[in-house]
Every structure is written in structure tokens, then in C-alpha cells.
Amino acid sequence: MREKSSIKRGVSLYSFQEEYFLRKMSLEDCIAKAASFGAKGIEIIGEQMVPGFPKLTDAFLEQWFGWMKKYDAVPVCHDMFLDFKKFKGKILSKEEQLQSIIRDLQFANKLGCKVIRVIVSTSPELMELAAPYAEKYDVKMGIEVHSPWHIDNAWMKKHYETMEKTKSPYLGFIPDMGTYTKRLPRVLIENLLRKGADEKIATYVTEAYEKGVLSEYIVGEVRSMTSKPIDLMVAEQTRFYSYTNPRQLLPYMDRIFHIHAKFYEMLEDETEYSIPYEEVIEVLKLGGYNGYLSSEYEGNRHIQDVYEVDSVEQVRRQQAMFKKLLGE
């Protein structure tokens, strides 16, 4: 008998970036909307929606926890960045990079987040150095498994070796479901068509991607058809998206702290155009995942040139899909 899934629902406020950027929604509005869909786990990018980052005033914290109470929500995850190229022509030293990570661990701790999303480019070596601080601040560090990386590739294997070597329960993964992009986002291709890409080439690229043709072949084929930069850009997109079998997550379940439920376009029928969430969630249930599925809408950048973005409706649809798939 399999254990009953206890997957929880959340929203990364990243999803509402369009409305927040344009000051159509405040931080409180973002939290309220997420919670109104029954997605009680709140994920935040401090550098996006906390002015004055990394400082946290007492007044802000009082408001923050007040909102959590008011909307019956819980802080779950803070997403960190590591700006090792902060100054031109210079790379921050290992010690400076470690200090940057510690800064984010402290920030997450103050916000009541028990997890931070570590940007994918962070090395296993730095993770190892930071592990004792993660323990000190009681904040787990999940390296983001973001396409075109996937959980079984070389970079992530090194991370896994470090997790095993240190035996630290504070080191793990945050898989981004963009790794399971079965079809290239329609919103992405339509955007490139608006910028002048050739329709036949776009059709060839999307079909080839769907068949699983290796990106190198797709790019090579398109190069033999044209030298127009915009058409080559269409082909190059296949390097940044990936589809791997979600079952690859199963051996790592006890190291998965949190999940980014990436999406590009939720259709009216409450399915995602590119990512087969029914397959993904089946695997997560099978693996006994009991953390958060955190909505991460990333379609706005592809449509904002001509459409008014409605991130709230997009998140609503994804959360409705999750409710169905989770049997709520």
C-alpha cells in the first residue's frame, strides 16, 4: 500500500512579478491572492519584493507576520541569488560568496522561511561551506534543479555527492518542473514570430523538440536553412528547455525540500500547455513527496509586449489543476 500523498500547495510570489513591477499589486495583495486559492505556502524573492533587502525592519516583520495570520498563510521559502560578478572585472572571493549565502540564510530565518532556493550556478563546494550556517539558522538549502540542468546530470551529481558526504540534512534539491517541458511554450514561439521569425522554421523547431530531437541537430538543421539571427534564436531555444522522465526524481525524494511548479501558459481548461503535470504529480505521489508545490508563473515575459498580463488568473488555473490532481 502506498502512503497517501500529503503534497501541499503554495505560490512563489515571483508569479505576480508583472503586477508588482507595475505597482498594480502590493506585497500584501500577492499574499492575499495566493492564499485565496488555498495555496497557503508563501515563497518570496527577497530582492524582488522586499525593498531595502537584505535589511528587515521590525515594522516590516510585524506586517509580514500580520499578513500571514490575516490570510492564514505560512512563509515557506526565500529565493536567493549569488552575485559573484558584483563588480566589473572581478569575481567575489570564496569567503565573500559564503558571506552572501549567510546573509540570505539570516534573511530567510527572520522571515520564518525554513528553506532557501539556492541559485543553480552555486558550487557544491560553497554548499558544503555553508551547511553549518544553514544548520545554525535552521534553514535548509535546496539547489535549484533548473532546465537545461536536470537532477541526473553531472553538476547535480556533484551536488548529490556533497550531500551524501556531509550527511547534512540541510542540503538538498529544489527541482523546477520546467525540466519536464514536453512542448516548447506556445507563448515563447508566438513572441518570436511577432519579432519576425519564419513560421516554417518555428514549426520545424517545435515539432522536432516534441519528438525529442537533440538540440544540436535542431540548431544544425536550422543553420543549414537560414542565417537570420531571429530564426537561429528560435532553434537556440531548444537548448534552454528540456524534457526528462519525471521518474528520475524518485531516488532523490528524501533530498527534495521544495518544488518549483514552473508554468508558462495555463489554458482555459486548466491544463498547462507545455508541462504534463498529471505525469509529474503521479511521480511525486508515488515518491511520497510531502513538501510544497509552489506555483511559478513565467509566461508574462513572453506576452507582455502585446497583451495585458493576468498572472492572478494564470495562478488560479494552475492551483485549480493541482486541486484536481491532488484529489482535494
Binding site: 515571483y14 512579478q17 513591477f21 524573492i45 530582492e47 524582488q48 525593498p51 533587502f53 541569488f81 552575485d83 560578478k85 558584483k86 563588480f87 566589473k88 515575459r301
Partner: peptide, 15 residues
């Protein structure tokens, strides 16, 4: 002017 990116940025990174 607004910075075309999805988070605030330390201004030394605006090259």
C-alpha cells in the same frame, strides 16, 4: 527609467 529585470539589482551590476 525602470530596470528591465525581475528583481532589484545592486547598482554596481548595472554595467
Amino acid at each position: 527609467a525602470r530596470v528591465p529585470y525581475y528583481r532589484g539589482l545592486g547598482i554596481s551590476m548595472i554595467e
